[in-house]
Design a protein around this nucleic acid. Sequence first.
DNA 1: TCTGGGGTCCTAGGACCC
DNA 2: TCTGGGGTCCTAGGACCC
Length: 451
Amino acid sequence: MIINNIDYIEKDTNFDPPSDVRCFLLMYGLIDCNNFYASCERVFNPSLIGKPIVVLSNNDGCVIARSAEAKKLGIPMGEPAYKLKDLIESNQVYVFSSNYVLYGDMSHRVMNTIAEHVPNMEIYSIDEAFLLLEGFENIDLKSYGEKLVKTVGKNTGIPVSLGVAPTKTLAKVANKFAKKYKAYNGATIIDTEEKREKALKLTEIGDVWGIGRKYSKKLQYHSVNTAWDFAQRPKKWVRQLMGVVGERTWMELNGTPCFEMETPSAKKSICTSRSFGERLTELAPISEAVANFAASCAEKLRKQHSYGCVLTVFIHTNPHATNQPQYYNHSVMQLSVPTNDSTEMIYVALRGLKSIFKEGYRYKKAGVIVSEIVPERPLQGDLFDTRDRDKFNKIMTVMDSLNGSYGKQKVKIAAQGFDRKWKLKNEKLSPCFTTNLKDVLEIKAEDELPL
DNA sequence: TCTGGGGTCCTAGGACCC
DNA sequence: TCTGGGGTCCTAGGACCC
């Protein structure tokens, strides 16, 4: 029985695990890319197949993706790269700086392929999509799923896995099985009560979607070690310990959908922030960085046809350097008129930065956050607004279109500067195979050097 | 020396009003 | 003067996700 009705869920607070036989009218799928960033690096460099690969975060900080081989070596997710130096060298692990242009483009290819075969999908992240499988009663979901997985792999070179179940959370569970056991051929379906029970019993509580580190610890303290233990607890108990959020996860694990398919909506906040490649002590280079972050926020706003009303700037020192003086501050500014104009945002952001910048610290990171985001129209004017908004709108449109055709940052505001002292460290960047022919040709030329 | 970046949602508590 | 409760709005912080 599927109860796809939020009102019912709200009212019946004593709903306990159902034990009746189910008939699923509607199933959710979760398809995601295996070791996505590592797989992307591999697509254009087949010599890496079978080799351990790790991809590092911005500034080559810590590990954010690992190939299966790297996982096998015991390289943990999130580990700082410097701690892994020996392990990397002794095992000849291939290390890459993150190349988001490449990953973004590969993501498009994967998503487009899925969209060609599934009518209703929701892109959930760069490497994941939920599918809504409606009207599949007479179709063998297992072979349908296997076929989809195979097609995506063939068309894009990226290996993917699919989990199918009556709720999104259960689809996530199913997906883990598809990944873990090769014999599933990339697709696992949870469509009977027996499979659900077995899957939940084999799933650690911390691996459940929606249960993070903190709750995982809390639950284990109460002897809840598996997803099944959790699903068997009374609903009231879960509500008390974890609030409505935990209650929804509980319902979903028990087969009642609480998370519907979502359509993409405009962001409610937009943030651009970076750690600097080197520590900065002067206002000038930090200003340049902040100007760039503000410009990037404005560009993101224009892309989603929104204006921002509030702008926050923050800076801080390195919290890990406990032997050095620490400083963290932020400044919140209300914009007189909602805007997505780069020049205006830069101006306001720099004013904010000036108000919080203090001499005598080694700054590590800064960022700009835009909040209270509203749709582009209707615009509420300010009586005392003297800015020629039409003119600046036109300038922004021209700038975006030039940058769209000739490449990022070909045209920018003077304050964004050219020094780039704040720039990221990414020493192990792969070429942008999919978007930059020049990079690819250069690599080829090098490859041909025999000695 | 070296530890990412960008989001969302929920809750508790305070201020304020009637 | 004192006492009371309910409602709303805002904010900071906590938890989670990828």
